[in-house]
Amino acid sequence: MSCEDDVVVIERSWAEPARFAEIYDRHAAHIQRYLARRVGAQAAEDALNETFLAAFGKRHRYDRARPDARPWLYGIATRVVGQHRRDEVREYRLRASLAPAEEVDGPADRVAAKVSAQATSAAVATGLTSLADGDRDVLLLIAWEGLSYEEVAAALAIPVGTVRSRLNRARRKVRAALGSEVRPLEELSNHG
């Protein structure tokens, strides 16, 4: 694999389409992880293929001022997820509606911890379901993928200020769904 910036590889793929495989090799694992979290492991493979097929088709319009293609690919992947959003929301609602499973065997502390984790998971799912699509996209790109505000802005083609306001709004709504279980979300305030 070459050590050229992504922009150089993409430009060279205009004349030699097979060169675009280097972009796939460099970034597919990151994009697939993100997609698996968004649409599930089974749908992630199809979504990954859709993402790279769309990226290949749009490679002539790639912003050559950006040496790293990953934010661009996250943006395409997020739009692919938009096509799967109804299923995603349905999954969050299903998780939120599931009652905590009762564990018969084992120490009381383990049962209490499991019930608490399941209740928190349901609250997070409810919180995610209540978010507007753009707010959810920003929150998940930052929380799951560790993107900076600037990278999220590039991925979603929105200003950094919009990223900040969407993240703030998403945090408030998820905090409200979680009640007192907000500690993991506090970590997001130090990111960016």
Score class of each variant (00 low, 15 high):
residue 56 F to L: 09
residue 71 P to M: 02
residue 127 G to Y: 04
residue 23 I to T: 02
residue 30 H to T: 08
residue 139 L to D: 07
residue 164 R to C: 04
residue 153 A to M: 07
residue 148 S to H: 03
residue 180 S to Q: 11
residue 10 I to M: 04
residue 41 A to E: 09
residue 52 F to S: 01
residue 109 D to V: 13
residue 183 R to T: 14
residue 32 Q to M: 09
residue 113 A to W: 07
residue 137 D to H: 08
residue 102 E to Y: 09
residue 24 Y to C: 01
residue 81 V to P: 03
residue 76 I to K: 01
residue 177 A to P: 03
residue 73 L to R: 00
residue 138 V to A: 02
residue 8 V to T: 14
residue 153 A to D: 05
residue 54 A to T: 15
residue 36 A to Q: 09
residue 50 E to K: 08
residue 30 H to P: 02
residue 138 V to D: 02
residue 108 A to S: 11
residue 90 R to S: 13
residue 154 A to V: 11
residue 166 R to K: 06
residue 124 V to L: 08
residue 40 G to I: 03
residue 144 W to S: 15
residue 109 D to R: 14
residue 67 P to D: 11
residue 94 L to K: 11
residue 105 D to A: 14
residue 13 S to Q: 04
residue 12 R to F: 01
residue 149 Y to H: 08
residue 75 G to D: 02
residue 46 D to Q: 08
residue 34 Y to C: 00
residue 18 A to W: 10
residue 79 R to Q: 11
residue 99 A to P: 03
residue 63 D to M: 03
residue 80 V to C: 04
residue 182 V to M: 07
residue 83 Q to S: 12
residue 51 T to K: 07
residue 141 L to W: 00
residue 188 L to A: 03
residue 106 G to V: 01
residue 187 E to G: 12
residue 12 R to G: 05
residue 177 A to C: 06
residue 60 H to A: 13
residue 183 R to G: 12
residue 28 A to V: 00
residue 186 E to L: 09
residue 63 D to C: 06
residue 75 G to E: 00
residue 11 E to V: 09
residue 68 D to M: 06
residue 38 R to G: 06
residue 103 E to C: 12
residue 115 V to P: 06
residue 192 G to H: 04
residue 140 L to M: 14
residue 179 G to A: 01
residue 108 A to T: 06
residue 189 S to Y: 12
residue 95 R to Q: 12
residue 99 A to S: 09
residue 89 V to W: 13
residue 43 A to Q: 13
residue 154 A to C: 06
residue 134 G to H: 12
residue 79 R to V: 06
residue 90 R to N: 10
residue 53 L to P: 07
residue 101 A to R: 13
residue 23 I to H: 03
residue 15 A to P: 13
residue 114 K to Q: 10
residue 16 E to I: 14
residue 51 T to R: 05
residue 76 I to N: 04
residue 57 G to M: 06
residue 156 L to Q: 04
residue 48 L to V: 07
residue 112 A to Y: 00
residue 63 D to I: 01
residue 15 A to S: 13
residue 95 R to T: 09
residue 79 R to P: 04
residue 170 A to T: 06
residue 117 A to F: 03
residue 190 N to Y: 15
residue 189 S to W: 12
residue 185 L to G: 01
residue 51 T to Y: 05
residue 171 R to I: 10
residue 168 N to I: 05
residue 138 V to I: 01
residue 20 F to G: 04
residue 95 R to V: 13
residue 7 V to R: 15
residue 101 A to M: 07
residue 160 V to Q: 12
residue 41 A to M: 08
residue 45 E to I: 05
residue 158 I to D: 01
residue 121 S to Y: 12
residue 122 A to C: 04
residue 110 R to P: 05
residue 28 A to H: 07
residue 126 T to Y: 07
residue 59 R to P: 00
residue 151 E to F: 02
residue 116 S to A: 14
residue 169 R to I: 08
residue 102 E to F: 10
residue 103 E to R: 15
residue 124 V to W: 15
residue 147 L to Q: 05
residue 129 T to K: 04
residue 153 A to G: 10
residue 6 D to W: 08
residue 153 A to V: 08
residue 18 A to E: 13
residue 111 V to E: 11
residue 106 G to L: 05
residue 105 D to Y: 15
residue 120 T to G: 11
residue 150 E to Q: 10
residue 40 G to A: 04
residue 80 V to W: 00
residue 83 Q to V: 12
residue 96 A to I: 03
residue 146 G to E: 03
residue 48 L to A: 01
residue 107 P to A: 15
residue 175 R to W: 11
residue 170 A to L: 11
residue 53 L to Q: 09
residue 41 A to S: 10
